[in-house]
Design a protein around this nucleic acid. Structure first.
Length: 223
DNA sequence: TGCCGGATCCTG
DNA sequence: AGGATCCGGCAA
């Protein structure tokens, strides 16, 4: 049990080192922020527990002119937070079922946001409650609900924030592709605003051609 | 006030 | 392939 206490202390020390990305990080177009968030650490503090995951997939939603972005309808009660200070959470419910986590971006009051679509476990940290592959699953794994809408991700005491890429962490090899589930948005559906770490086994579908675990349902290498 | 359509996921 | 399940946005 000494060993386990040691591990707990180690985790506590590690998690104290995690600090939120500064607001200036988010105060840019989501097109710039989204790829920079891949490899960063999603941190959820709940009671005495701190859960950490490495973000491996994001999507940029770049403002009112982006027909896939909720702000396409302009300023409304729901989208208000996207026009506010960068660095806050925008959480909404999709299909009446799944909460989705976004980080509000800028510049300034431009209604930009980055959807956080997947995270992978970090060795040495608490195991995640559940797979964090896919935006709905990710919210479940980190216990993120609608109540966290508008929370400030830059507050050092926040229950939810994103910490910078660890210096010792591997640098992601990024792949860029079209966003998922936005076929209704015309030409915006084909814009490559989805970013993922090609070497992660925890990205959602559809996976890029030669990523780890890219084998779809029952497909077999050809000969 | 009512209706419609989602930035999804899981099962059959 | 389809259902779950509910909220925001828009038309009436």
């Amino acid at each position: 049990m000494l060993q386990r206490d040691g591990l707990r202390d180690w985790r506590r020390r590690q998690s104290r080192l995690l600090r939120p990305l500064p607001r200036s990080f988010y105060d840019r177009n989501a097109r710039q922020v989204a790829p920079d968030l891949v490899g960063c650490l999603l941190v959820r503090r709940e009671g005495k527990k701190t859960r950490v995951g490495r973000i491996v997939e994001t999507e940029a939603y770049i403002g009112e002119h982006d027909l896939a972005c909720h702000a396409r309808a302009g300023r409304t009660a729901r989208t208000e937070v996207m026009y506010g200070e960068p660095g806050h959470a925008y959480v909404y419910l999709i299909y009446g079922v799944h909460p989705m986590l976004n980080a509000v971006c800028g510049p300034g009051s431009a209604a930009n946001a980055v959807l956080i679509r997947a995270a992978e476990p970090v060795p040495g940290e608490l195991p995640l409650l559940h797979s964090a592959t896919g935006p709905g699953n990710l919210c479940k794994a980190f216990d993120i609900g609608l109540a966290m809408n508008r929370d400030d991700l830059c507050d050092p005491g926040a229950a939810l924030f994103i910490a910078p890429r660890p210096a010792e962490g591997r640098k992601p090899r990024l792949w860029r592709g079209p966003r998922v589930g936005v076929d209704y948005s015309g030409e915006w559906a084909s814009r490559k605003l989805r970013f993922l770490d090609r070497d992660s086994a925890h990205v959602s579908r559809p996976r890029p051609p030669q990523s780890r675990m890219s084998e779809g349902r029952g497909s077999v290498p050809r000969r």
